[in-house]
Design a binder for these strands. Sequence first.
DNA 1: GAAGCTGGTTTCCAATGGAAACCTATCCTT
DNA 2: AAGGATAGGTTTCCATTGGAAACCAGCTTC
Lengths: 144, 144
Amino acid sequence: MVTSGKPQGAPEPAGESCRLPWPFDVYEAQCPTRMVLDRIADKWAVLILDRLRDGPVRFNHLRRDIKGISQKVLSQTLKKLERDGLLSRAVFPTVPVTVEYALTPLGRTLTDAVAAIAHWAERNMDAVLAAQAAYDARAGGDPG
Amino acid sequence: MVTSGKPQGAPEPAGESCRLPWPFDVYEAQCPTRMVLDRIADKWAVLILDRLRDGPVRFNHLRRDIKGISQKVLSQTLKKLERDGLLSRAVFPTVPVTVEYALTPLGRTLTDAVAAIAHWAERNMDAVLAAQAAYDARAGGDPG
DNA sequence: GAAGCTGGTTTCCAATGGAAACCTATCCTT
DNA sequence: AAGGATAGGTTTCCATTGGAAACCAGCTTC
């Protein structure tokens, strides 16, 4: 988390200073937009949001679906996303208590963008892996 | 960041296991898609890619524009993005050597999705901040 | 020859992420 | 009633990561 950088070259008060008409400056360290970006530019958040597109999912269901996520990080990420108003947490007093996580309307607006990222990764996986292989082959000495 | 705790220069050969027909699950831990997602679901990578949309930018220019990024992280992120084939690094033997970073065609295909994220953050910043305030107010002492 | 520009790397330290154990509560089995 | 399973977490421990700042190296200007 940044939010501690100095206004280098732009000694403006935080908050208002980045509400420029367009294009915005997400690049300003003090900008709240950066805080938002901090949250959603997260591997697990992307996977969780994408997973919730089909409807509400329970905690352990998410945990099993999103392979490799730890309970701690899942819990933390869900809390952050809930705090940001992107998803809702519903507790049902069933037998072993059931907790369902679902996208909020706000969260729903994000998932399109998020899905675009996830699907880009799927579609361009091969190209990226090829690029990595080429890069690694060059690694060490490149006459350029 | 690395799922299996291995150095990032050596992608696992477990790639085939997730090459299901379609859509292969980003949710599988060993899936290369996850490695791709790992890279692009990153705060700084998003800002860098978005910053390069207008054309090539030099190292220190990026550093000054993207407030709060450290040289180390900028360098590391640029290397990762270059390795993934998303951007290119051009060295010009000018007086103090000039290094320009630019989007590759592959990177260009990503920036639309990435820009969508950045712009979503800009547009929905207020809603997110309001949600956070509401959440924090509840968290204090609201049993109901 | 000190300072400043370029583009980095290195060092130190605190925050984060992952693995696995632990906790609370309610069933089901034995 | 003890033991296990399920559900939803929290806690603990430790390795990796991110950030701040120092350092490095080539070349120019003062």
